[in-house]
Simulated scan of single mutants.
Amino acid sequence: MASPLISVTELADALRDGTAGCLLDVRWRLDQPEGRPEYLDGHLPGAVYVDLERELAEHGHPEQGRHPLPSDETLRAAVRRWGLRRGARVVIYDDVHSVAAARAWWVLTHAGIADIDVSVLDGGLRAWAAAGFGLETGDVQPPVGDAEVSGFGEQLGMVETARWPQHGVLLDVRSAERYRGDPDTHDPVAGHIPGARNLPTTYHLSGGRFRTPAEIRRNFASLGVDESIPVAAYCGSGIAAAHTVLAGAVAGLDVALYPGSWSQWSRTRGREVALGMTPAQRIRRV
């Protein structure tokens, strides 16, 4: 299986010989969701800005969570604005641990977009700059693309996620503090889904880049995951969990994503919530 990652030297070579394809800059952080000003100040040559909040998510009813998946119409308009064409090569990056880039990678690889080759720049903008490669300023507006979006299809929901620990491993990839139920300002209820095990997605990184496939497999194996065990992941709102799905792909493991994640679960009356550092230590209902 080909790696979903591309190194800065590989991308630099591709830019020189004209085979880099479409570059997407996804600047986003939970504490700073608008990344466009930083993008305008400096981005990889030819990179198009992607607005995660408006193009990689849809904002509707609170019970859908904080970052539900974009509608087919929203995504179709976005990929054409980005200039994506049939048969395109796409490289995605961000400036913090590839978490936002992983969301874009997951969306583009699961939305029924045919004939595109999607990679994430390992280390992102920081690795590019550290290697001494240059940046451009200002906006990039490519010609409108013609990529088609057929849709996400059925995704993992609350019912299936609640049952997942009965036949596989359910991973909560948030920090240990949020997993055990320390006070949290992001969602109305703190804790984790009963039966979920904690594996923060930052464990798959070293120096801002992904660890080796063998190291990532050991991380998963520490919680009982191997190629024979079904595994699913969730986070706060479905963004960091996409990073764990990407880490799994680097290691040759298939990880399912619960897009609604804790932000949906904690806003749904009647859901059970576990507290503490074990999968089902103390349980109460929302």
Rank of each mutant, 00 (worst) to 15 (best):
L108H: 10
G83N: 08
V79C: 03
A77I: 10
V96K: 11
E73P: 00
R89H: 00
G112E: 13
V99R: 05
D115A: 00
S98N: 15
T74V: 12
E73V: 15
I92Y: 08
W106I: 12
V91K: 15
V91A: 13
W105H: 12
G83S: 10
A104K: 09
L84R: 00
A111W: 07
W106A: 13
G87S: 01
L108C: 13
R85N: 03
V107D: 08
R80F: 02
V99E: 02
R85T: 10
W105M: 05
T74N: 06
R80D: 03
V90F: 02
R89M: 01
A100V: 09
W105I: 14
A101P: 08
D95C: 10
S98E: 15
D95Y: 13
A78K: 07
I113P: 01
G83H: 03
A88E: 03
V90G: 00
H97L: 09
A101S: 11
S98W: 07
R76V: 10
V90W: 00
I113H: 02
L75E: 05
T109A: 07
A104F: 08
G87M: 04
A111P: 14
A114M: 01
V96C: 04
L108G: 01
T74I: 10
A114W: 01
V99P: 01
A100G: 06
A100T: 11
W105R: 14
W106V: 12
T109P: 04
G87F: 06
R89F: 00
A104S: 10
R81M: 04
L84I: 14
I116M: 02
A101K: 06
R81Y: 05
H110L: 05
H97W: 11
L84T: 00
R86S: 10
A100I: 10
R89T: 00
D95T: 04
D94L: 11
L84M: 05
R89A: 01
R76Y: 07
R81G: 07
Y93N: 05
V91E: 05
L84N: 02
W105K: 12
V79I: 15
R76W: 07
R81T: 09
G112N: 14
R76E: 07
A101N: 10
Y93E: 04
L84G: 00
V90Q: 04
I92S: 04
W82H: 07
L108A: 05
H110M: 06
T109M: 03
W82T: 12
S98Q: 15
I92T: 08
W106T: 11
W105V: 14
A100E: 06
A100F: 13
V96D: 14
W82S: 03
W106G: 15
G112P: 12
L84E: 04
